[in-house]
Amino acid sequence: MRTQKRCMGYVAIVVDDYDRAIEYYTNKLGFTLVEDTPQPGKRWVVVTPNVESDCNLLLARASNSRQETFIGNQCGGRVFLFLQTDNFWRDYEAMKAAGVTFCEEPREEEYGTVVVFEDLYGNRWDLYQNN
């Protein structure tokens, strides 16, 4: 019997400028730029926290005023994305040194260590490490 592999390939996040977003995600969060391909009227820009990951972040520039209203508010103020790490303190300290905005102090939960941060646009993320 053949099994299918299914996974999330991309999660799109609305941004105001490709280059500004690339700079933030690569230099502040330590992501890798996977692809930056010009297309008519836009670019296909993909970054990833881990080049071996099946799930990547697609940086999608807003193309009209309606889309612009969602920049920084992808999830209505709730945590939108969850960045899992194998070394919480290493990544937390690196992100803090790079100027990432944290909304709270790191905390221990029953599942592991977590802290909420905001990206360049104000979207809220969890940085977490499972126990």
Results as ranks from 00 to 15, higher is better:
82 F>G: 04
79 V>R: 06
48 T>E: 01
86 D>W: 03
56 N>Q: 09
41 G>T: 00
105 E>R: 08
63 S>Q: 13
6 R>I: 15
100 V>R: 00
84 Q>K: 11
126 D>P: 04
108 E>N: 11
97 A>S: 07
62 A>H: 05
107 R>H: 12
77 G>F: 05
77 G>V: 01
120 L>V: 14
59 L>Y: 01
104 E>G: 01
73 N>T: 02
14 V>R: 10
114 V>S: 10
68 E>K: 12
15 V>T: 06
43 R>F: 13
127 L>C: 08
89 W>R: 09
78 R>C: 15
75 C>P: 01
120 L>H: 06
6 R>A: 15
42 K>L: 15
26 T>V: 07
51 V>A: 12
104 E>P: 03
43 R>S: 02
73 N>D: 12
118 E>G: 07
31 F>K: 02
89 W>G: 05
3 T>F: 15
52 E>R: 06
44 W>D: 09
124 R>T: 00
46 V>A: 03
47 V>M: 02
87 N>S: 06
36 D>V: 02
14 V>A: 10
8 M>I: 15
61 R>E: 14
67 Q>K: 05
18 Y>T: 06
49 P>D: 06
99 G>Q: 12
8 M>H: 11
61 R>Q: 10
55 C>E: 04
110 E>R: 10
129 Q>Y: 11
40 P>A: 09
89 W>M: 07
101 T>A: 12
67 Q>P: 03
107 R>Y: 12
88 F>P: 00
17 D>N: 14
32 T>G: 03
64 N>A: 05
80 F>I: 02
54 D>A: 13
107 R>Q: 08
49 P>Y: 12
38 P>W: 01
98 A>W: 03
109 E>F: 09
69 T>Q: 11
7 C>W: 11
75 C>I: 02
64 N>T: 05
13 I>T: 11
119 D>A: 12
9 G>Y: 11
16 D>M: 13
42 K>S: 15
22 I>K: 10
45 V>S: 13
37 T>D: 03
106 P>M: 05
94 A>F: 02
36 D>H: 04
122 G>W: 03
64 N>W: 04
86 D>P: 09
